[in-house]
Design a binder for these strands. Structure first.
Lengths: 197, 197
DNA sequence: CCTACCGATCGGTAGG
DNA sequence: CCTACCGATCGGTAGG
């Protein structure tokens, strides 16, 4: 069971960044104003600039710290060379689902608002995401070679899995009758059953 | 094979709306300016207002005409009462995939920018989408009752399917080596295999 | 942490 | 279809 680190010793900058994630998710980065963010924190807008550099720096921090969490978890899974491919994919699916439920605002912003990243960062972010997808594809391809998985197109399988998991954002605001554990096992099951021989 | 209607006899308003879909997708609704849209069409910004009412009216037209296409297709599928549940779900999956590939800008905007709809329309849009998901859930529940499908949580299955299909937006800008037909059959297969007994 | 304020950009209108 | 233009809002700085 992978741990998801919770923020402790939150600095003022951390507090601002966390509230910004909430604001950027609900309003959208482009529409969200620093005046709104300031109001959420009980200060005037110019005061924010004692702790942060700019509005877009907030977006960068949210997007990259989230991306890094996913990359770190993938490192761990890849180092577990004993596990069969299906088991490793399952770990990743479960981690995605749990991140979606526990760090909803940050994951949502990283998924939806990255396009507003300024120029060098935008490219870095997309490269990092592409690399992540490539590594997932590699795990599935290995599983197919070893006859552990059905001989499907690995790239499309990755696309299918990542997108399905991302769709949990709709669950968050909708049907709350389904408990998180049921959701995690059902969705993992559905996606794996389509993968395994 | 469901048909997807192509725009003929395009009025000036249709041309503006179609270009707006492209602009809103690439730049985001909030950041896209009417001056940019005008430039794409070779006119000055105020001239647009001879054909359209407002920027947000453009968004409304894109979101609702897209939503209506999906609803109409669902009507058709539901009327085909002979077909088993898996067959009906397959038809819907394939329609989603094809819409994603053929009307990419419009579907993308309806999926991502609906939150900028002004107040009465925002609620209508969300209601329409919720009703659509409910009807899909109903088809799957029926399939489970008739023992045609595995006894999974129908709501989560709908979430999984709709989200996976939506993820094709990443394919559009990425890996073009996979032909559309392969993509459609692979993804449909993956999702159905997880559903069928 | 605040008040005061700047330059830029926006959606949209007036008037022809 | 255009030019000219308005009121509002924005990110961010100066200066304390």
């Amino acid at each position: 069971m992978a741990r998801i680190t919770a923020g402790k010793h939150a600095s003022k900058k951390d507090v601002i960044t966390h509230k910004a994630a909430l604001l950027f998710r609900t309003r959208g980065f482009a529409v969200a104003s620093m005046r709104e963010l300031a109001e959420m924190l009980g200060v005037e807008a110019p005061s924010l600039y004692n702790h942060i550099g700019s509005k877009s720096e907030l977006l960068q921090n949210i997007c990259f710290s989230t991306a890094n969490e996913f990359t770190l978890q993938l490192d761990e899974v890849e180092n577990d060379t004993e596990a069969p491919a299906a088991k490793r994919i399952e770990q990743i699916i479960r981690f995605h689902i749990r991140m979606m439920l526990e760090k909803f605002d940050e994951v949502y912003v990283a998924n939806h608002e990255w396009k507003y990243l300024p120029d060098p960062y935008l490219g870095n972010f997309l490269n990092q995401r592409r690399a992540y997808e490539k590594r997932l594809t590699g795990i599935i391809e290995e599983g197919i070679r070893k006859k552990e998985l059905r001989p499907l197109n690995a790239y499309i399988a990755v696309l299918t899995i990542l997108s399905a998991v991302r769709g949990l954002e709709f669950w968050h605001r909708g049907n709350r009758e389904v408990p998180a554990a049921v959701l995690e096992s059902n969705m993992t099951d559905h996606l794996l059953k389509g993968l395994i021989k």
